[in-house]
């Protein structure tokens, strides 16, 4: 899912994860789609409460791992068999058991670094427009569990959404409308 950019929306804070879970369920049930829960640590069960599916990142890890295996085997096959074959006591140039350690290492290298880069990128791409972190102190990296409904949501209406978030029992409910990089 890709979202249009905007840094306008409504946020409300909760003090404990359980309240935030209930709020996420209610917001999802109310039909909001461009909403997010900002939390200081990953809250168990939040994906289900928000109606999110499992991350697709691990599938790409498998692809990257396979790519690492192919790259390592191709490199050693080219160097040891085609470009510069050496004779070790008449043994075959394609000494595949000796190639396994490096194949394993390159598989891990490609898979691990690729997964990290893709996960960070995916975390940006699949996120609704966020309250700009340089301008708004949501408290979500510190001690608050924040519900955030972006103004890009089709159901968004400043007065109604504000009233909805208040009805969830949130504290510090406010309308955010800052000029800033919404994906920063």
């Amino acid at each position: 899912m890709t979202f249009p950019t905007s840094s306008k929306g409504v946020l409300g804070q909760f003090a404990v994860p359980d309240e935030a879970l209930v709020a996420a369920q209610k917001t999802h049930a109310a039909g909001y789609t461009h909403f997010d829960m900002l939390t200081p640590f990953p809250v168990h069960g939040m994906d289900d409460a928000m109606g999110l599916k499992r991350s697709w990142v691990p599938y790409l890890t498998a692809v990257l791992a396979f790519f690492g295996i192919v790259a390592a085997q191709a490199m050693m096959l080219y160097i040891m068999v085609y470009d510069w074959p050496m004779n070790f006591g008449g043994k075959p140039a394609f000494a595949w058991p000796a190639f396994i350690p490096i194949t394993f290492e390159l598989m891990v290298l490609f898979a691990a670094i690729g997964t990290a880069i893709i996960a960070v990128w995916a975390g940006k791409r699949d996120t609704v427009p966020q309250p700009p972190p340089m301008l708004i102190k949501t408290g979500a990296t510190r001690d608050k569990f924040v519900v955030w409904i972006s103004a890009t949501d089709p159901k968004f209406n400043p007065a109604n959404t504000l009233a909805f978030v208040q009805s969830l029992g949130a504290h510090g409910v406010k309308l955010v409308d800052e000029k800033g990089d919404a994906h920063a």
């Binding site: 997010d36 939390t39 990953p42 928000m50 990142v57 898979a111 960070v120 975390g123 940006k124 994906h183």
Partner: peptide, 20 residues
């Protein structure tokens, strides 16, 4: 990298952390 604590980002982050 502009981290906000978004659960939509945590979802991928946690999957990647487990994989790593």
């Amino acid at each position: 990298l502009g981290w906000t604590g978004s659960n939509r980002a945590w979802r991928h982050y946690e999957a990647a952390y487990l994989i790593l």
